[in-house]
Design a protein around this nucleic acid. Sequence first.
DNA 1: TAGAGTAGAGAACCGTGGTTCTCCCCGTCA
DNA 2: TGACGGGGAGAACCACGGTTCTCTACTCTA
Lengths: 184, 184
Amino acid sequence: MVLPVNEARDRALDAAEQLIYARGVHAVGMDDVRELSGVSLKRLYALFPGKEALVEAVLERRDGRWRQRLADFVTRVGDRDERLLAVFDWLAEWFAEPDFRGCAWINVFGELGSTSPAVLAQVRGHKRRFAEQLAGWVADAHRPAELAPQLLLLAEGAMVTAGIHGGPGPAHEARRAAAALLSR
Amino acid sequence: MVLPVNEARDRALDAAEQLIYARGVHAVGMDDVRELSGVSLKRLYALFPGKEALVEAVLERRDGRWRQRLADFVTRVGDRDERLLAVFDWLAEWFAEPDFRGCAWINVFGELGSTSPAVLAQVRGHKRRFAEQLAGWVADAHRPAELAPQLLLLAEGAMVTAGIHGGPGPAHEARRAAAALLSR
DNA sequence: TAGAGTAGAGAACCGTGGTTCTCCCCGTCA
DNA sequence: TGACGGGGAGAACCACGGTTCTCTACTCTA
């Protein structure tokens, strides 16, 4: 039986995402992706021009999913002020997942940011879109626009700190700080 | 003329630090370090057991210097509350340096955090000591202890955002947020 | 059923990089 | 002055990983 193109592509992206998130880009070989995905090297190179394009595709798909998950969680909250705090509740849940290893984009930037323009564009695009999401919710709450970048810094700080030390603690700290900024 | 051990070690660390900060660990070869430092491979391997130990030594020395520079800047400010804000002024100066490429420890963590215990220990140690520095200044200002981790998140968020997008803007945002937290 | 084309397994190719080794120079000291 | 030993230049060694190629099997179709 022959795997349809879309399914082979999905399997390849699944495997690559899992491995790269766990170990970093350069620690994952195309052969590792082949082994985990069951998609042959030949097909991998038919689906993606090379490893860099695979990494790019992984980041792009993850961006859509990540922001969708966040948005689903946040917009389930009715109160517009509470939504802003719910961002940090969602971060806390994420940080507590057993295979959490920090923010994939921050990690990839640390590894490749200065050497791969394509990956750098993915990272900047993701962070910009996340900032826009936040800014939208700040506007919905009729809060001053300058609040959004401040909440963004708290979220980014929480992601990086949780990545390095582990655990949801930084999300709780960030939530407290965000509440303080909201209560002024 | 024969280079004394300490000077050879310094030159090797200087070169390795510069290259690794600019390009990331895996993009720098021992031969690049040899070329820039003028220290032969033989001597590099006499000074350090291997590349990982060199990276470790680079991070350790940079930790001392980085926190010293920060402390010098901050403690020059008389007012204890202003000191807390001065942290972000210093970050702004750092971010504006032409070769700024984000926080070296965050970057290295993204690249090696999950694969090198020695490097991970350096990263955690640095971040812990930075947090302790901040906590000390918060205590000096007779501010509640829970303020320190919140300022830490702002600082980390600023470092990561400035690394990705460039420029001192995130430090200014973080300073405003910190001032808001202080004015409650 | 025969032929064609596609896909997989796995070897092969090629560059790179960490680490070690060889060869030679030069300063030192008996 | 001659043996010695540290140090440098650069080759060599070895493993790894991205990419391509070969060979074979299988499926689909005429």
